[in-house]
């Protein structure tokens, strides 16, 4: 009678102390982002198959091994929307991109999971990507300003922006 109650009491009292402050912040759901991308109607989901050539190119852009089999996107006319993830420091950042004929139209951070560096979701940062296109060597045609204390997150968003532009070209040409 006594033992389970005492043990349960002790552990339950310890539970809130052990609970760390959560760090995951969701700014937008997938549906909200897609409404932002396609206000009239969300188009059907599509996939681009990542063949060996595309994977190699993606690996160069992402500066790591890429072995994903497909990339998911939504397309209406010559505009596409992509929801991607890339690790900043410890955890994946979920980000959304809308790409049109004039380059990147919108960048939004959907979920940020790191304890620090969340400034990448601010408009002053994401605005820098608007209108960006790929230049030689799959690089962006403009420099992206760093954010002190969020270098790895800035790099992650920038790399994914480059990949999305490359994949957009593939999706439109395919």
């Amino acid at each position: 009678m006594w033992k389970p109650v005492v043990v349960g009491w002790l552990l339950c009292m310890l539970a809130p102390m052990a609970s760390a402050h959560g760090t995951h912040i969701r700014y937008l759901t997938q549906d909200e982002f897609l409404v932002l991308a396609f206000p009239e109607q969300t188009p059907q989901l599509q996939f681009i198959m990542m063949n060996a050539v595309l994977r190699d190119e993606a690996a160069q852009i992402m500066e790591r091994r890429v072995s994903v089999a497909r990339q998911r996107y939504w397309r209406a006319g010559d505009r596409t929307a992509w929801i991607m993830e890339e690790i900043g420091k410890e955890y994946p950042i979920t980000m959304g991109f809308v790409v049109g004929p004039e380059g990147i139209e919108k960048v939004r951070i959907l979920v940020y999971r790191e304890p620090r560096g969340g400034e990448v979701h601010e408009r002053f940062f994401t605005r820098q990507f608007e209108g960006a296109v790929l230049a030689n060597g799959n690089r962006l045609d403009r420099p992206i300003d760093n954010i002190t204390g969020a270098t790895l997150s800035v790099d992650a968003v920038t790399r994914v922006a480059r990949l999305v532009l490359r994949l957009h070209a593939e999706a439109i040409s395919g």
Partner: peptide, 24 residues
């Protein structure tokens, strides 16, 4: 003890875990 246990458990934080997308 039971009340303490309930009080302790009720103050446990709800996890704010946002699952990453298994597609990736």
């Amino acid at each position: 003890a039971l009340l303490g246990m309930l009080a302790g458990c009720s103050s446990t934080r709800v996890m704010d875990f946002e699952a990453a997308d298994a597609e990736h």
